[in-house]
Amino acid sequence: MPRRNDAALAFLSHRHSRPAKLFSLPVPTREQLTEILTAATRVPDHGKLEPWRLVVVQGAAFKRLADLAEARARELGGDDEKVAKGRGQYDLGKLAVVVVASPRPSPKIPPVEQLMSAAALCFSIVTAAEAAGWGANWLTGWPAHDPVFAARAFGCTEGETVAGIVHIGTPPEDFPDRPRPDLARIVTWAEA
């Protein structure tokens, strides 16, 4: 018989998604973030490929990223709305972990599975940060998907993409939970 972990199930059943723009200081120390990342990197790494890398963003780096996003939006002929959306999370950021999907050549592990490993790492960072008592929110936004911005901001090279930007900080005390999926509507039981 499998051994249940009721505390873990209860935690996952009651976790909330809180907007990163509502996070405040303090943020985790380097030691606390290292503990979170140590727990989070226990994701499927697909044959020890570790098809991802992490960039920790803090302090003045947020202004640099906001300015880069604005400059890139202007290069693309973006209007004020595109500039504001590009700058948004960086103007308000306190601490973030950027997960860069970095697929490795492998005859056994397809690139899509390596990308899913990076996505699993994003969620694992969110979960580990929340388990440690912090608020965490996984974002991307148009700049993260723009290869020029990603190269300038996070050093992404050919074949690398930003899987997610996980913001971590002190969450607001009370925030209403969002509606959750109706399992009866989305689950199909294939029994034959």
Rank of each mutant, 00 (worst) to 15 (best):
W142A: 14
A20C: 04
E191Y: 12
E31F: 11
P26G: 12
L115T: 01
F62A: 04
A39W: 11
P19H: 04
R53Y: 01
E173K: 15
E113C: 01
N137Y: 14
P105G: 06
D91K: 13
P105T: 07
R180N: 04
P147S: 06
T41W: 02
R180C: 01
V166H: 01
K63L: 12
A7G: 10
F23S: 03
V126L: 11
K108E: 13
D174I: 09
A20T: 03
P51M: 07
L49S: 06
V97F: 01
V97K: 07
P181K: 05
I165M: 02
D67L: 11
A71L: 03
P171F: 02
F154K: 00
G141L: 06
D67C: 06
E191P: 03
T140M: 02
G47E: 04
P26C: 10
G78V: 08
A40R: 05
E130A: 09
L139N: 10
A60D: 15
A69F: 05
V166P: 01
S102A: 14
A69P: 05
H145Y: 14
R178T: 09
R74D: 10
L68S: 07
E160Y: 04
S24H: 01
P110R: 05
G133V: 10
S24T: 15
G155W: 03
W138E: 02
R180K: 15
G169R: 01
V166K: 03
Q58H: 13
G159K: 10
P105Q: 10
A192S: 15
H14G: 14
M116V: 09
E81R: 15
V187A: 10
G135K: 08
R72G: 01
W134P: 02
A136L: 06
W52H: 06
G77D: 09
Q114A: 07
H16D: 11
K85R: 15
F175L: 05
I36F: 08
K21P: 03
W52Y: 15
L25D: 13
L92A: 13
C122H: 00
E191F: 13
I165Q: 06
E70Q: 14
T188H: 12
A131D: 12
K85M: 11
F123C: 09
A192M: 10
T157D: 05
R104L: 08
V98H: 02
F175R: 04
A144D: 09
V55Q: 06
V56C: 09
L22M: 09
A144N: 08
V187W: 00
F154L: 02
A7F: 11
V57P: 08
P172V: 05
T38D: 14
F23M: 03
Y90F: 15
R3A: 12
D45Y: 09
A150D: 04
V57Y: 03
R64W: 09
D146W: 11
R72A: 03
M1H: 14
N137C: 15
G169H: 00
S117I: 07
P107D: 12
V126A: 10
K108R: 14
G47Y: 07
Y90I: 04
E50R: 15
G59S: 01
A163L: 01
P176Y: 04
R185H: 08
A10T: 13
G133T: 11
V56M: 04
P110G: 07
P172G: 00
M116C: 11
